[in-house]
Design a protein around this nucleic acid. Sequence first.
DNA 1: CGCTAGGTTGATCCTATTCAACCCGGGTGG
DNA 2: CCACCCGGGTTGAATAGGATCAACCTAGCG
Lengths: 251, 251
Amino acid sequence: MSGTQRARTVTIDCGKCLLRRHGSPAPELQSALAPVRQSRIGSRVVPPGTDICIEGEPSTEVFTLVDGWAFRYKLLHDGRRQILGFCLPGDFFGLGSEGEEGHDHSIESITGTVLCVFGKRQFRAAMHSDPALAGLVRRIVRHEESAAFEHLVDVGRRNAIEAVAHLLLELCSRLNGGRIPANCSCRFPVTQTHLADALGLTAAHVNRVLRRLRQDGLASVDKRSLIIHDAGRLAELCEFSRDYTARLPAI
Amino acid sequence: MSGTQRARTVTIDCGKCLLRRHGSPAPELQSALAPVRQSRIGSRVVPPGTDICIEGEPSTEVFTLVDGWAFRYKLLHDGRRQILGFCLPGDFFGLGSEGEEGHDHSIESITGTVLCVFGKRQFRAAMHSDPALAGLVRRIVRHEESAAFEHLVDVGRRNAIEAVAHLLLELCSRLNGGRIPANCSCRFPVTQTHLADALGLTAAHVNRVLRRLRQDGLASVDKRSLIIHDAGRLAELCEFSRDYTARLPAI
DNA sequence: CGCTAGGTTGATCCTATTCAACCCGGGTGG
DNA sequence: CCACCCGGGTTGAATAGGATCAACCTAGCG
């Protein structure tokens, strides 16, 4: 599904990084800032629908998503796709397992995205020399695992309405740094097909579920935007707990 | 589901640790051995069906599973259970997210198990002072995430036969250090209910699927043992790739 | 001996799939 | 300017995969 346009790599001043407006300059990371920046290659602008990482292929780079949406996924031979999770600004990925050959999953951009690109070798060296950085990365990976576990409950033990509700709340919460504002409305470039592939459903059925949520006045997704009308009832419906959606310091 | 017996904590010589027979004394960990052992509290023997970690509850300990089987899980209010993964000897758990209050999931023993118990605070200190140990833990968590992703495909995009086949192969491979021996037969204390809760199915349906696998000469589970009769056809059926089942050095 | 956990099987039901048709809006090229 | 296409969404009808529920069986255990 690679786009036709080419990705461009440019250099942007770290001081102007969009992520800093999130007010998370990772205080305990001051010591590591220098080596991390030294491992930095530059920024990259990626068109929508482009594979940023490809399962099985090795890579010499790791990324922070600065702007835009992407998702992690795996494919089966016959084309079935499982979306493993969505990547939002501030997310870090591409590190893989040390000593492993290739990525264990692919990552594709949904919107046009801006990436901050680091050299993997240099980044690993920075982690090795700075325990705080190493600790943050470990925390990030642990956080991803926690989200994967929650996702597993969605797919395995929640029915379609609960699962969709839960995923919508998760995304809304993550977009807002771990809270769900009253009457939240956010940009939402995720298609019904994406939701289906994330939750082990079909797009047709996701459509029916969304209509249901809309009719019940709980949430509505259209025109590429998501509105949570009644976060309370929605959270009750699917037993949502926002603990796992807290924002971690960006790298 | 706590057993009636009490867990006992005893002291056992590290030199006699069962895990060392796996021939994985973690060469790069030599530097960390001293602080890790210093953070060690002792061994603990746990009866079957006991919660080792409980979701939401904080804990001051982390564990290496020395002997026996356990599983990670989450419960919904109405009793629905999602098993997140199985723990085998050598697995490490309980570290949780730094700065987080409680565990994000529970862990219950299946068989009687032997745990190696470490003080969480001291273990964290050891990680902080030894980059190799920190790196290993990061690798372990990354490895768990990779397994969770594979699990997500099982539940979301594989049908019941494929999912069961895939899980059986995964467990067989992990039990054998990342390979599947020809005509493999292993001890298998996992019940059909466990398989069902791991794969988002019902026990009744798992039963039918297992019968099917048995009739087709692919694999059989009974009498608490698993036999893989035709690993090749089984792997083909479910697109199993054993990459993610490699054994990491034990802590 | 009776209890319990685990397994087995059948009948029935229902959730979600499948497949098809159709709509809409935004590009794109003639 | 219009025709066409294409991605995404919407809807209906038929179907299937798996759930549900209940009965029953077996082995191990107190």
